[in-house]
Design a protein around this nucleic acid. Sequence first.
DNA 1: GGAGGGTATTGCAACGTTGCATGCAACGTT
DNA 2: AACGTTGCATGCAACGTTGCAATACCCTCC
Lengths: 339, 339
Amino acid sequence: MSSRLKDVAALAGVSVRTVSNVVSGSGNVAEATRQRVQQALDELGYRPNLAARNLRAGRTGLIGLVVPELYSPYFGELASLVVEAAQQRSWTVIIDQTFGDAEAERRLLDGTQGRLVDGLIISPWALGPEEVTTHARNAPVVLLGERPPRGLADRVAVDNVAAADEATSHLLETGRRRIAAIGLQPHLRNGTADQRLTGYRNALRRAGAVVDDALERPVRELHRKDGAQAMASLLDDPSAAPDAVFAFTDELALGALHVAHERGLRVPEDLAVVGFDDIEDGRYAQPPLTTVAPDKRQLAERALQCLADRIYSPDNGVPPLDVVVPHHLEVRTSSARKP
Amino acid sequence: MSSRLKDVAALAGVSVRTVSNVVSGSGNVAEATRQRVQQALDELGYRPNLAARNLRAGRTGLIGLVVPELYSPYFGELASLVVEAAQQRSWTVIIDQTFGDAEAERRLLDGTQGRLVDGLIISPWALGPEEVTTHARNAPVVLLGERPPRGLADRVAVDNVAAADEATSHLLETGRRRIAAIGLQPHLRNGTADQRLTGYRNALRRAGAVVDDALERPVRELHRKDGAQAMASLLDDPSAAPDAVFAFTDELALGALHVAHERGLRVPEDLAVVGFDDIEDGRYAQPPLTTVAPDKRQLAERALQCLADRIYSPDNGVPPLDVVVPHHLEVRTSSARKP
DNA sequence: GGAGGGTATTGCAACGTTGCATGCAACGTT
DNA sequence: AACGTTGCATGCAACGTTGCAATACCCTCC
């Protein structure tokens, strides 16, 4: 069924080595020979066996991308960009989903299943960064969107504190004072929510606005349903009475938007909403959603850059990098100035 | 840096073969030896080299999933399910994006880059099914959502004609007569849009309703922006004047919904909208979107089942299967009965 | 006590590829 | 004419793993 270098060599009447040279384009091969071999290659439909090549080379050309879930728009978009950027480096991406399960994250980092990938990009949820770096045994690891204790692993992310601060400040500037935060995740070791909460509080304090426990709402996951639940609980709580919501992800924001509509609240007149991630749905929401837009393309690109550096010069002693990727506030109708 | 069986064997004072037996759990190993070897394995943090294992076995345990794009919600959800189902079969998934490029689809099917995967699940856009099956040289292929000429390759999909018929009939039942179709793709070889168009026309004809060229709108791609454009052109065309829209994907429907809102049309009062795919966003749209819901989990599961059969019994002469996966119409507010 | 059967362990070879060293022939230079 | 150089082609070995077959050993049974 499948032909080896050996078969091609036999057909072309040359040695295996020569065929290999033709395939790889390396070494010296006479034009006449090259053509003869090429013809044999075409005739047999030769395709290199990558397992063999990888074994020989000690590299697989595969990198792993570990995300909590692929079906959510943010990670879908991100994965798409990583795959695209990896292609340009002739890498192939293996995508794993952990569904936020600590054991799954540990297993993938451990490489318990075996050494298959040359490097790993992971967006951890359940594991704290210390644990992530302890478990990364086999291959270089880049953390995506997580802040590890300095000096443990490369990391690529936006400045969550600053971004959350901007989003909240923007709401303050539009005249809102009781700004709720949706998206706290006290049960996760992942620190992203904490950072966004910090930025949110910073902005409120600086402006002398209300910092109120009743306005800060936890969620289990980051989907629309969680945002919807949080929004409902917020509206049901008389002590909350928000005039704006900063949701820590766009999906949460869209869930919140949904409930606001259901309850007959007008957005942005009665309630302003800002999200985070700039997923495509937000652009087409009713009304279009204001959001913090990380430069996702750069996020993917820089993560791969870090990985490439570690893979191609493993022991050059460069200390772990902390790459901050730019973001901007994408202002749309959902946070229009109060009339 | 990384330890081989050889290293473990040396440390434990046994042969390489015995270590291999311990790792794989096969063969006879005395309990005492097993423990000694296990200790050495742990101490050295042994991880099997999968390239070597794959070379030996002639299989890689990898399957390819080829989709046009990963960032669109439908394919994101689908990819998520495929990855999940593959894990249960101890397969790892490699995801490739073609962005609808014929050359990219051809290259991946050809395996020009080398034989890496044991099988391929492809959702073709640019290539017609004949070409798909001609180019599948290396590994078994399953077509996802495409109808190949009978007898060329396994295929897993919903019954697009029947589903489109149901969606259209539903709109007719709610009292609409001028039902537009958004999503024709005359420039693609992929036949999905054609099938949905057929179902749409069938339903109209059977009900004696209007079949009008002006109501059938092509799109370039299947994103919100394309749906928005098509909707705008529909509303700008006085000869169209639709009272309902059947969009061939939910994303198109969401784009159309967006434009309807912009133009001050009330949905569902002035215009009913039905989509196709049942992506999560549709559930949270304003108003929630009626849609044809394919059983995506089964789509993924059955595709893997086909692949498994071909991989594990390659030459058993079973003719290509045509697996039809169930769907249902998920009725939500966007197509509520006309008041 | 020797034959027979089972258990535990091992060595050899091969999967398909490429790095390295080497061989051979033809060429140009002194 | 002898020499070094270059271009082309080849053979050997190794990457780390596992299938197969062989070996060594111990125990049991007649």
